[in-house]
Simulated scan of single mutants.
Amino acid sequence: MPNTSTPPVRYGLTVPLRGVPLSQHGDLYAQMSDLGYTDAWTGEAAGYDGFTPLALAAAQAPRLRLGTAVLPVHTRGPALLAMTAASLAEAAPGRFVLGLGSSGPPFVSRINGIPFTEPYKRVRDTVRFVRAALAGEYVSGHFDSFDIEGFALPNPPDRPVPIILGALRPGMIRLAARETDGLAANFLTPGDLGEVVRILWDEAAAGPRPGPKEVFVRLFVCPTRDAEYARRLGRGMLAGILNARTYSAFHDWLGRGEELAACHRHWAAGNAAAAAAAIPEALVDALLIHGDPDHCREQVRRYVDQGAGTVALALLPAPEYGPGAAGVSAMIKALAPGSLFGR
């Protein structure tokens, strides 16, 4: 299905940039703006939190739009989440997007000691609470997954804060269409994105929030001509991802259960190396963008053609570029959007 978002496509990077301390990001944020990148997006798993890199960018790059894709709803209380989002929205007025999602047991339970219960309800209830709080409402009462005695932000944002959901399968995609401003996705092929977007648009057209929806996609990019290097890197990254409950179920839904059966068997047996080796080469190439920068941009275009309105590249190290801030800066320049994305 063709992209219907207003051109030009938003073209950003995932931050923090790998291999560069946060204290050295200021010049890189400025470089991003000068080269035509429009956005900086974080995630949140077991490394950096999702807000601190964006707070730095808010001060150091006033032209960049900032977003979280995504923050787990279990690991912060609803009021704390609303307070932090409101603070960042105040620091970057009109240019912050709040992305929320369920995450999964590895992050919620295993390293944070928080029960991972009723993720759909928790996401839905958190969206409802945070949207009301950011709009300046007094919120109290019973939600299916928590109770609130009473909360109101003393200084709610002057402008609406868009909320999007990390959504991969039909239930969460439909929730995103009905109750939020869009969705975020990653670790999927262009064809997979087309199916996700079809469900989003169909549900949005019939739902209570029928306006335009943000379709955000994080794309992992290794700008190298050394395909074997990229595939080794990709296999090492994808083995854990494709065996995580959320992404395993997603790719089963997409019809890859048999294709990934050997990978799952090896992973369950505790053999991560064999699990990585069992990922089909064609799937590695489909989920990890690699090649020279022009080829990488053309691969990004395939996602745009399937409905992505915002793409954020997650840069992986490539042998053609040096280490540290200088190497990352060279990659940022090499992959700059240029005329391909209307920048």
Rank of each mutant, 00 (worst) to 15 (best):
P2E: 07
S5H: 15
S5G: 15
V9Y: 04
L13M: 11
P21A: 04
L22K: 01
A30L: 05
E44P: 08
A46E: 05
P53D: 04
A57E: 03
Q60W: 07
Q60C: 06
A61D: 12
P62C: 12
R65I: 05
L66K: 11
T68S: 04
H74N: 11
G77V: 05
L81N: 10
A86G: 08
L88I: 01
E90K: 15
A91H: 09
A92G: 13
P93V: 10
G99H: 09
L100D: 04
L100P: 03
P106Y: 06
N112L: 05
V123K: 06
R128F: 02
F129R: 02
V130R: 10
A133I: 00
L134C: 03
G136S: 10
V139I: 14
P154L: 12
P154V: 14
L165G: 00
G166I: 09
A167Q: 01
L168R: 01
G171H: 09
G171T: 07
R174G: 05
R174T: 11
L175T: 10
L175Y: 02
R178Y: 00
E179T: 11
F187M: 09
F187H: 12
D192S: 10
E195C: 08
L200W: 06
P208W: 00
R209M: 14
R209I: 12
G211P: 01
P212L: 02
E214F: 04
V217H: 01
R218V: 04
L219G: 07
P223E: 03
A227C: 03
A230T: 14
L233N: 08
L238E: 09
N243D: 11
N243F: 08
R245H: 05
Y247L: 00
A249Y: 09
L254F: 13
A261L: 11
C263W: 00
R265K: 12
W267Y: 15
A268W: 09
A272S: 07
A276I: 13
A282S: 15
L288C: 09
I289G: 07
H290S: 09
H295M: 06
E298M: 05
Q299V: 09
D305G: 11
Q306D: 13
Q306Y: 07
G309R: 06
A312S: 15
L313D: 06
A314W: 08
L315C: 09
P317I: 12
P317M: 13
P317L: 07
A318C: 04
G322M: 05
P323L: 10
G327K: 13
S329E: 09
A330P: 01
A330T: 01
K333T: 15
A336E: 12
A336N: 12
S339K: 14
F341A: 01
F341D: 00
G342N: 02
